[in-house]
């Protein structure tokens, strides 16, 4: 007897009904969105049900969608039913101003650091987490770097005064003016070159 995606969907709909939306199957993985306050209930149900047995947390991460009003941050869970080998993905959306999510670390020990990482990079506040502090970044950091409002450095910026790293500085690498000047300088120097 093997579990199929249709059964999983039916069981979940029977239990949670309207609270689960956006059913999809991108590249063969059953995906849905749950209301933000029932994430733990969904996981507990998937864990406890004798037929579903989603007892392995593969991955937990967040995604920032600045354009989704009042639900900017998505927390994505990847669960795995090992005996039947079925993967499942579900998301919850929370507002960026108050990203409160119930912690899964009581259910899965594995969630502990994954949630800390998610907090570290997206600022998701996992309620009930035993030790919610930064894990990969320095403790003094006062922003959440993976959010989209923090773009990577502009490759053409010239305000950095750093000769060693090739930007700005007195040599002015990278600026159009500097290139012309350097070429002119080189030409001048070459005139006096002698072979000894």
């Amino acid at each position: 007897m093997s579990l199929n995606k249709e059964t999983i969907k039916q069981k979940l709909v029977a239990k949670f009904g309207e609270q689960l939306t956006e059913w999809e199957e991108p590249y063969g993985v059953l995906t849905f969105t749950a209301a933000k306050d029932i994430n733990l209930k969904v996981m507990q149900f998937l864990y406890d049900d004798e037929e579903l047995k989603f007892r392995f947390l593969t991955d937990l991460c967040a995604v920032h969608y600045p354009t989704r009003k009042d639900e900017e941050i998505a927390v994505v869970y990847h669960l795995h039913n090992l005996p039947d080998n079925i993967r499942l993905r579900f998301k919850i959306f929370v507002p960026a101003v108050q990203p409160d999510v119930f912690t899964a670390s009581k259910l899965f020990e594995a969630a502990n650091w994954m949630e800390r990482e998610t907090y570290d990079f997206f600022g998701v506040n996992f309620i009930g987490h035993p030790k919610l502090k930064r894990i990969l970044n320095v403790d003094e950091m006062d922003y959440f770097p993976m959010r989209k409002e923090f773009p990577l450095e502009d490759q053409t910026r010239i305000d950095k005064d750093d000769e060693m790293f090739g930007r700005g500085g007195t040599l002015g690498f990278g600026t159009q003016k500097a290139v012309i000047e350097t070429v002119a300088e080189d030409d001048k120097n070459n005139e006096g070159e002698e072979v000894v």
């Binding site: 991108p26 590249y27 593969t58 991955d59 991460c61 995604v63 994505v76 990847h78 993967r87 993905r89």
Partner: peptide, 30 residues
């Protein structure tokens, strides 16, 4: 699209969760 793919790395399941919004670079990669 969004895709999760995993391989058996030497020390465990190495997974790539890639979300594309149709642009030239990934929207999110975990």
């Amino acid at each position: 699209g969004e895709v999760y793919h995993s391989v058996e790395g030497a020390n465990g399941e190495l997974g790539f969760y890639l979300i594309s919004d149709g642009g030239r670079t990934p929207y999110r990669l975990h």
